[in-house]
Design a protein around this nucleic acid. Structure first.
Lengths: 259, 259
DNA sequence: CGTATGTTTGATCAGCTTCAATGGAAGTGG
DNA sequence: CCACTTCCATTGAAGCTGATCAAACATACG
């Protein structure tokens, strides 16, 4: 696991493609908030560059304050690490997610690490300030994004504090599926499947369990033909059963700010 | 535990005292953000009324979206309740805390319940909108407040997922102490003590444990002369030991928006 | 003074951890 | 192309943390 400054690599492809948002496929995400052309242009003006990182790279270290990025493609997780090395993953970032906004308030306590090769869009360091000053619409969307994050973390706390192992795993799977669906990353041919490049250790750190126990939970879900995680692909054979186990209150899809 | 609309009671005292922020003792809180006179006046203009509620009242129910309040005095907790009744407390609200902002993004999944008699300030339903439109300074502070909330919830997730029982209890005690200190509610005569009106059940719901186990943890902390919770008062005899157990990274005090 | 609520304690038990060992898959250098 | 390394998945045995259940006790309150 290497740590490196985000200036490590130059973006690939012709220069004309570097800072462009014109063909950004994320603009068509489900639940994306509507923005005017002027607002879109304002955002594009804040984009600094787009670059590639490989798996296992620490995008944002604990204590880092400034810097605003979005995950253009690939996977990452956000984790809080305790002094003795115990680690809790608090969020999985998927394409379109904003990374680094937390630093606005105070140096964050969490780190962000890629789980796969990824493409990252970097924005101006003071992008948040500029957006807040530019248009109350941005303020509202940014606030909504932050509050939605808090809401997800509340639910995570309830999951970690009050659900048992199999419920926690099912919960993660349901969330991964729903969020993948929101960015059109789900394959529905036959059974439901989507990419989810998590090792047992990562799942353990996300659920507050151990890899050994994760393994036995996965076996249980597999043998009951509910869901299978294999080869970085999550396959859901029985979504209803999975949701039943997760006890997931059909999450109201929140409109999402896509930069 | 009764549920009631917030219109239940009229504020006590002479009318001149009802909507006044002039003598609000919270203005002098530690870490409070600096505001200009104009900004203060704008906030006062959004204040609707101030009223008293008793213990065990549900201030905000799950699913409720609008409505902005601050806790002027007293205690409350915010909890996420699962479908089968299991409950996870995700935050304790102390004087000066903002309640209900989460509803801005989407109907919240948590409820807010008083733990003691309390005084609540109610603001205009569209107060957030008005503040965002009025001044980018408010936008920045509101965003910072939301992000700070998210940061606390990240740490809570790490606590619930990765710490053992005694560490979780110690963690709560340290946080209660620090936050009480920030609003000048700590008594330092002899040993450190502050009000904390939590039953064992409440502590259990905050830590993801059972009341029986909370009791044995409290006994352990008591017998080792670290801390005692008795009669709604938390007394800390050995703060260093408590922090050591909690494994608390000396939390950087964040500047706090006090409405 | 009776009732409700919260505290305290112990016995028993289950869920999950810890530890250790094995096997598979993918990457690396010769 | 193979030997070697490394990481990850898988499994089982043993043990501990914390849950569950039940009962007695204390306290506050109408």
């Amino acid at each position: 696991m290497q740590e490196l400054p985000l200036t490590a690599r130059e973006p690939p492809g012709p220069a004309a493609n570097r800072g462009s948002c014109e063909n950004c496929y994320l603009k068509n995400s489900l639940h994306g908030v509507a923005l005017t052309e002027a607002q879109r242009r304002a955002i594009v003006g804040l984009l600094r560059r787009r670059f590639v990182v490989e798996e296992g790279v620490v995008l944002v270290g604990p204590g880092q304050s400034r810097g605003l990025y979005t995950l253009y493609d690939g996977w990452a997780f956000e984790a809080v690490t305790l002094a003795d090395g115990r680690r809790q993953i608090v969020n999985f970032a998927i394409p379109g997610d904003i990374i680094g906004m937390e630093g606005e308030a105070a140096p964050a306590t969490r780190s962000v690490t890629t789980m796969s090769g990824a493409i990252v869009c970097e924005f101006a360091p003071d992008a948040i300030d500029l957006m807040l000053a530019a248009d109350p619409v941005f303020s509202r969307h940014l606030l909504a994004t932050a509050l939605d994050r808090a809401r997800n973390l509340e639910n995570l706390a309830a999951t970690l504090g009050r659900k048992r192992a199999i419920e926690r795993v099912a919960d993660i799977f349901v969330n991964i599926f729903r969020r993948s669906a929101a960015v059109n990353r789900v394959n529905y041919s036959g059974s439901i499947s989507c990419v989810f490049p998590a090792t047992h250790r990562i799942l353990a750190d996300a659920t507050g369990l151990t890899p050994a126990h994760i393994n036995s939970i996965l076996r249980e879900l597999r043998e009951h033909h509910v869901a299978v995680l294999s080869g970085k692909v999550l396959t859901i054979h029985d979504l209803a059963a999975l949701e039943e186990i997760a006890g997931s209150e059909a999450a109201t899809p929140v409109s999402r700010l896509v930069l």
